[in-house]
Amino acid sequence: MDDPLPQYLLRLLSTAASLTQTDREAALLLLREAQARLWRITPGEGLLSALELEHRFALPLEDWLPESVRLDYTGPLLASGIPTQTCSEMLLELESQQLWEDIQSIVKEVRDLCRIRSDGDGLYRRFRRFLIENPVIESVKAAVVFIPLSRTLNEFYDPIPEHLIADGHLYRCPNAAGQ
């Protein structure tokens, strides 16, 4: 998907659909933004109200979204008010793609910074190797790599959820431990 507008619109629609039952206020904000984006892509169709757009979530995407926007997604986003498999797939695929793009943007910034530093080549290599070799880290180890680059851990790492820690220990997957 080369054009970011359709991708962003799909992310808005799937997120709004998933929130319609649990957080109407957040869903409404997303629906309003989606209205404007959809109208921008298809100005000849007229502006839909947020309620009309929400009602379309129960219709197959191929019935109301142009093919250039929906790509290979088919089916409704909601069935009996509950997010469908299509909706869940869109959320998963589009959010993970956006996360990947955000991280790649930061990596590019680091690369560009390293190009203008005299010790940049070594810093960049250490940075990339650290990311590759350390899916789970200790803050102390990372400081040596991230501080010289003016980067923070939360740009690349998420905190480990509490439910994965038992008695203060993190038990890694046995398959990943041998790699």
Rank of each mutant, 00 (worst) to 15 (best):
P135V: 02
V145T: 08
F130K: 02
H163E: 13
I165Y: 13
P174N: 03
R126N: 06
N134V: 00
I147E: 11
R128C: 08
V136K: 10
L149P: 04
S139P: 07
A142F: 03
E133S: 04
V144S: 14
L153I: 09
F127D: 01
N175S: 12
I165E: 10
S139I: 11
P159W: 10
S150C: 09
Y124W: 07
V144D: 13
A176H: 02
R126F: 13
F146M: 11
A166Q: 14
C173T: 15
H163S: 15
A143D: 11
F146G: 02
L153M: 05
Y124C: 05
V144T: 15
P148C: 02
N154K: 07
R126I: 05
A166P: 06
R125A: 08
V144N: 14
N175P: 05
R125M: 07
Y157M: 07
R125I: 06
F127G: 00
L164C: 11
I132Y: 15
V136S: 03
R129M: 11
P135S: 00
I132T: 06
N134D: 05
Y171F: 12
I165T: 15
E138G: 09
P174R: 13
L149F: 12
L170N: 05
R128T: 12
L164H: 14
Y157S: 03
N154E: 12
R172K: 06
V140K: 09
L164M: 14
S150Y: 13
E162F: 14
G168R: 02
I160N: 03
F127R: 00
Y171S: 10
A166C: 15
V136N: 08
F130L: 06
H169R: 10
I165P: 11
G168C: 06
A142V: 01
P135A: 06
S150T: 06
H163L: 11
F146L: 12
F146A: 04
Y124R: 00
L170W: 08
A166L: 15
N134L: 02
I160A: 01
N154P: 04
V136D: 07
A142W: 09
Y171H: 13
V145F: 09
I132N: 01
A142R: 01
L164G: 07
R125L: 11
E155C: 00
Y171C: 15
R129Y: 15
